[in-house]
Design a binder for these strands. Structure first.
Length: 362
DNA sequence: CGCAATGATTGAAT
DNA sequence: ATTCAATCATTGCG
């Protein structure tokens, strides 16, 4: 198959049944305006234009396409036509280039960047974070430096920071990949259609702008997260919040079921704190720390001792509750281990007598 | 507002 | 370092 025939095939829809191509350059123009001399040249141009028009419509990754392109590139009229097209484009390009606006630094983006920097999310390293935390603590006007909450805040901040950086890196990588891909594509195509380096540049800048807008979303959501974290941090230390119903429930349960020795160990306190925080995290609430559990037990012990009568009702209530749960557990245990052992001791929890009015405190 | 409940803080004791 | 006891400060209710 010679080159022309191949190109003809590429042109597809154009039917040339009558005028079978002979020896190369006999392609009539679409509107049959044939005749005068220089005709071969015109036909040449029409031909090559057609090829150019169609070649960009075709998928580029076929092996055939390469052949066709190669054929096109080797066409004898190609350089001249190419330069003409470039010239035309240069002239009309002004209008296109006029639309190119130099991007002024987006004030909102600057604001976000500044904040991320100030908050230590996008700053150098850990130093920024702790500095921001210290600044936040100072802004709260609280004289006491509660290291527990402080470290809590810092841990969460660094978590946010890590997520931010990995995401940012991902975007960066994707952007670079995409850019090089597009550039390669354009460079490849610039051999068949007039694409100036400036246009490639413009394309790259467009891509970058798109990706940076995505990045801005990331920055925005990061800022939001930091703000939420910060406000919660400040809230927690500025104002006292009552524990949730469920949290006090859990604490009371422990207290009254260990009434004879209501001094939870460090591990028990941690357990309780975790439990309370879990139940509280279902809704909007404060997370309860170990020291808060200690405070609660300290207060509870002293207040219970001070006026046992006042707490009698509560004590009975929780004693009954634990009794019920214990009974349930026992029943379940019995049902489960009927074959195992007839004398299964009930698991966990005190009997917690209802009449108990003398919890030997201290 | 007044008042009780309640979480947090402080200082002494151990 | 932990606990007690007193006290402070805020919250929630009537």
């Amino acid at each position: 198959m010679d080159e022309q025939a191949r190109i003809m095939q590429a042109l597809g829809g154009v039917s040339l049944a009558g005028h079978s191509v002979q020896g190369g350059m006999a392609l009539p123009p679409p509107h049959g305006h044939d005749g005068t001399d220089g005709d071969g040249r015109k036909q040449d141009i029409g031909d090559i234009l057609h090829q150019i028009m169609t070649i960009t419509d075709q998928s580029l990754d076929e092996a055939q396409a390469k052949h066709r392109k190669h054929g096109l590139n080797c066409h004898r009229m190609k350089p001249a036509l190419f330069s003409v097209l470039c010239e035309i484009k240069e002239k009309t390009g002004l209008s296109i280039r006029g639309a190119q606006e130099e991007d002024p630094p987006d004030p909102q983006l600057m604001r976000l960047d500044n904040m991320l920097l100030a908050e230590g999310v996008s700053g150098p390293e850990k130093g920024g974070g702790s500095a921001a935390a210290a600044a936040a603590a100072a802004a709260a006007g609280s004289p006491t430096d509660n290291s527990i909450e402080h470290s809590d805040y810092r841990a969460k901040l660094s978590q946010i920071r890590q997520i931010y950086h990995t995401e940012l890196e991902k975007y960066e990588q994707a952007c670079n990949e995409f850019t090089t891909h597009v550039m390669n594509l354009l460079r490849e195509q610039s051999r068949t259609r007039p694409i100036s380096p400036k246009e490639i540049e413009r394309m790259v800048s467009i891509i970058h702008r798109k990706f940076s807008s995505i990045q801005m979303q990331l920055k925005q959501s990061t800022c939001e997260a930091v703000m939420i974290l910060r406000s919660r941090f400040l809230d927690a230390r500025r104002k006292r919040r009552n524990f949730s119903k469920q949290a006090t429930e859990i604490l009371n349960e422990y207290f009254y079921s260990h009434l004879s020795n209501p001094y939870p160990s460090e591990e028990a306190k941690e357990e309780l704190a975790k439990k309370c925080s879990i139940t509280v995290s279902q809704g909007v609430g404060t997370t309860i720390t170990v020291s808060q559990v200690s405070n609660w037990f300290g207060n509870k012990r002293i207040r219970y001792k001070k006026n046992i009568g006042k707490f009698q009702e509560e004590a009975n209530l929780y004693a009954a509750k634990t009794a019920v749960t214990a009974a349930h557990a026992a029943a379940a245990a019995v049902q489960n281990s009927q074959t195992n052992s007839p004398t299964t001791p009930n698991s966990g929890g005190y009997p917690a007598p209802c009449y108990q009015s003398d919890g030997r405190i201290q």
